[in-house]
Nucleic acid binder design. Sequence first.
DNA 1: CTTCGATGTATCGCGGCGATATAATCACCG
DNA 2: CGGTGATTATATCGCCGCGATACATCGAAG
Lengths: 178, 178
Amino acid sequence: MFEFALLGLLHEAPMHGYELRKRLHDLLGAFRAFSYGSLYPTLRRLQRAGLIVEEGPEESALSWGRRARKVYRLTPEGKERFADLLSDAGPQTWDDDSFGVHLAFFSRTPADVRMRILEGRRRWVEERREGLRERLAKTGEQIDRYTRELHRQGLESTEREVRWLNELIAHEKSEQDE
Amino acid sequence: MFEFALLGLLHEAPMHGYELRKRLHDLLGAFRAFSYGSLYPTLRRLQRAGLIVEEGPEESALSWGRRARKVYRLTPEGKERFADLLSDAGPQTWDDDSFGVHLAFFSRTPADVRMRILEGRRRWVEERREGLRERLAKTGEQIDRYTRELHRQGLESTEREVRWLNELIAHEKSEQDE
DNA sequence: CTTCGATGTATCGCGGCGATATAATCACCG
DNA sequence: CGGTGATTATATCGCCGCGATACATCGAAG
């Protein structure tokens, strides 16, 4: 997940940790925070795996300012890995955690994969919606007011998301045959 | 978090692990899954901390069926701990992960704490909303279509949640002086 | 009669988080 | 000129919770 996001960002340009985190925050906004507590360990993991390399401390002449920044660059293996992750449309791409990240890199995702992810996500959300509907129907009025409120709110937001996904899917379809 | 939820459920009645998980799933629905991978380790943690005790394998006579169920019961310390957690209204009670769980036990939460949690949550969501608004405004049209769509959806759902929270808060206020 | 789904307990590795430490630079205010 | 606080920047630590997996029993359906 984090790995995917970092490779995606480094695919655009080499960057140092702090900037990666900022770009990520910008990109994902509401979804996922990705703290420094994951950032640096993940970078080292990627490095060990040979997917990124550390470049010397950015000697771009002139503005010699603050040292100690480590700039990371994607290796060919890293690019390959990112391409693999981009073409993945497995179940793990449409859960709550991952879906947002995948959407953020959708413009570089193959069209058929986009479709499968969107439809997978829709199915997933619909299942959650049905679960909530049943729970709300079954227990009727006897359940705790706050719990019911929680479920009502959950139901509404899943319904909204399904509608949103339908729009996205429709848009994909219309673009497909233009 | 998980600790809080388990103590809350055991506060109602002694239970074994599997049932705890089912009740939790029922209670939280959309929010948080809480897998077995956390359940049993957490139970042992609570046990070590002296907050719960393991009762003998449920000898409720008659239906001698399946053995090996371990029934857990709250100790006085456990009840105390739960009461403490119930009266907590700190920042960690209104993040995405915890808020749902706290809501699920709201009917046993002191009224003033309920208020502070709801208002804290509202502030929190409003901040996220503002962040999304700025990001959508600032970058204007130049950003990626999918990313914008992601942020639009995020913005809408935060707006809805704020409205929802306002209703809950209003309801609390009306109940306060009845 | 056996196979499948539910019941039930449990472990393992790992991904990510929050708290925390450290330190240099920059902008502002007095 | 000096202090103070925000921003830039890297890094570690312990903990929490997850997914995968294993294993065993039971009831029901075929």
